[in-house]
Nucleic acid binder design. Structure first.
Lengths: 136, 136
DNA sequence: CTTATTGTCCTAGTACTAATAGGACAATAA
DNA sequence: TTATTGTCCTATTAGTACTAGGACAATAAG
C-alpha cells in the first residue's frame, strides 16, 4: 500500500499517517470516492494498533477530507479535492507573508530576503523528488 | 519584563520562552552581557515553577546563546550577539524551508511557488522596479 | 435470516514528556 | 556571615500517544 511509518520519529505515528493521506490527496494519488484500507487491515499491515488508524481516519474526517460508514469503509470526500486549490493557496500566501514580516523585523532588505529565498529554492529543487530528510 | 506565556498554547511553556529569548537576541533587544532575570524571579513573575525557567536557560546555554554562573546570574554571551546575524538567518531559512515543504506537499511546481512568492514580494515592498516577465 | 466486514465506542494500562514542588548544595556577592 | 543565584536531585501530577481488546450497530453478501 501507499503508507509507511517511522517508529523512531519524534512525530506521532498517527500524525505521520494523516500527513501521508493528505499528501496522497494533494498529489491526486487518492481521489474523491477512493476507498481507504479498512482500519484493521491497515493496522495489521503497519503492525500498529487499530485504534491508531481509527484516530487517523477520524481526524481526517474531522477536517472534511474523508467520510466513514460502518460496514462500508472510509472514502475520500468530494470536498477534500474540490476545496483544496483555494485553501492551499491561502495557506501558502499566509506563510509567505509571515516570512516577509519577520524578514522586515530583522531589518532584511528586499534584496537580502530575495537572495535567501533564491538560495533555498535552488537547494530545494536541485534533486527533484529525492526525500529531503533534513532534521528530526 | 519582556516575556509572556500562553498557557493554552500547544507549544510547551519552556519552548515559548526559549523562542522569545532568541527573538529578543535576534532583534537586539537583548545584547551581549545583558543579564537575564534570576530564575526564581522570572518564575514568580510568570507564575510558573522555577525548574521550568531553569530548563529554558540551560537549553539556551546549550545552544551557546547564554552563560550562567551560580551566584551571579545568566547573561547573553558575546557569541550570542555575534551569532545574532546567524540566528536571524537560521530562523528565516527555517521558515523558507517549511514553506517550500508545504508547497511541495501541495504539489506546487517550482515555477508555481516562485510565482506566488514573487507576487507577495511585489505587494509587500510596493515594487517600483520594472518586473521582468520571464516566466509567468 | 445468518454471517462476516467495518467503523465506532468503551475501559484499562504502559510509556513518555511537560510541569510542579521543594530540598540540598556550591559559587558568588555584599 | 548572610543572601543571592544557578544547579542537582527526587517525587508527583497531568496530558498525550499508543497498545490491547471487548462490545456494538450499520452494512453487505450468502
Amino acid at each position: 500500500m501507499l503508507f509507511q511509518i517511522d517508529l523512531h520519529s519524534t512525530k506521532p505515528v498517527y500524525q505521520q499517517l494523516v500527513d501521508q493521506v493528505k499528501q496522497a490527496i494533494a498529489t491526486n494519488r487518492l481521489r474523491a470516492g477512493d476507498r481507504l484500507p479498512p482500519i484493521r487491515d491497515l493496522a495489521a499491515e503497519l503492525c500498529i494498533n487499530r485504534n491508531t488508524i481509527a484516530k487517523v481516519y477520524s481526524e481526517l474526517e474531522r477536517e472534511g477530507l474523508l467520510y466513514s460508514r460502518a460496514g462500508q469503509g472510509s472514502f475520500v470526500s468530494d470536498k477534500g479535492t474540490e476545496l483544496s486549490n483555494r485553501v492551499r493557496r491561502e495557506q501558502l500566501t499566509e506563510r509567505i507573508d509571515e516570512l516577509l514580516t519577520q524578514a522586515r523585523l530583522f531589518s532584511y532588505t528586499q534584496e537580502q530576503i530575495e537572495e535567501l529565498i533564491r538560495k533555498r529554492l535552488d537547494r530545494y529543487y536541485r534533486n527533484t523528488n529525492a526525500p529531503q530528510e533534513s532534521k528530526e
